[in-house]
Amino acid sequence: MAEKQAPVAKSSNFIKAVFAIAWKDLAAELRSRELLSAMLVFGMLVILIFNFALKLDAKTRITATSGILWVTFTFAGTLGLNRSMAVEKDRGCLDGLLLAPVDRSSIYFGKLLSNLAFMFIVEAIVLPLYSLLYNVNLFNPGLLLVILLGSVGYIAIGTLLSAMAVQTRTRDVMLPILLFPVIIPVVVAAVEASGGYLQGMDISELRYWINLLLVYDVIFIAIAFMVFDYVVEE
């Protein structure tokens, strides 16, 4: 006879599992600092290299800033996404997660939360550093909103694709190959909206790009929610 859980108990288990996975990732990272240190060092190096390579004047600095920032976030984020799933796969822990009697999309949302936390930590360190190096004020609420929305879209699809890529032998190169073409609309919208805010444009002029980011965030999360079970199963 099949046991049927009440919807409230089921959703409570789901939320509990999501936060347990996110907590587990954060606690493990706090001890090892493998993932964050790699992302941070990489992010800082990208900013430094652009700083020396481009030699921007005050005017072009403003226009180039959004592009440089999103290149930094995207590449550093890829490192983190790859590592986050590789840790699960290498010690067989992904099987441990898949054996748990919870809706498997809770694994996706747990990893999404922890990956987002890592991304935000990197951004919180990279942004002030960029401000110092390039002498550009980045503490604009509109810009921070765009970074939030862009990061959610990027990590939402990145977490799904990293679960797919980690099953392949060439997982390190597979993730960027899968991820970058899919993420183009989010990066374009994020760069355009960020650039607009930095140039002092009004929110009404940037509504199109913000809406695009919102739509992609919702679509990516919905797709991942629907297909994650099939992605992780043999």
Binding site: K24, A27, L99, P101
Partner: peptide
């Protein structure tokens, strides 16, 4: 089901207690 394979399916950067607590939460 309880499953044990030749891989421990445990997190090296968590303590024994933290590992069990994590899986205990996953199994409610």
């Amino acid at each position: 089901l309880g499953v044990v394979s030749h891989m421990p399916l445990l997190y090296g950067d968590l303590t024994a207690e933290e590992n069990l607590r994590f899986f205990g939460q996953m199994y409610n």
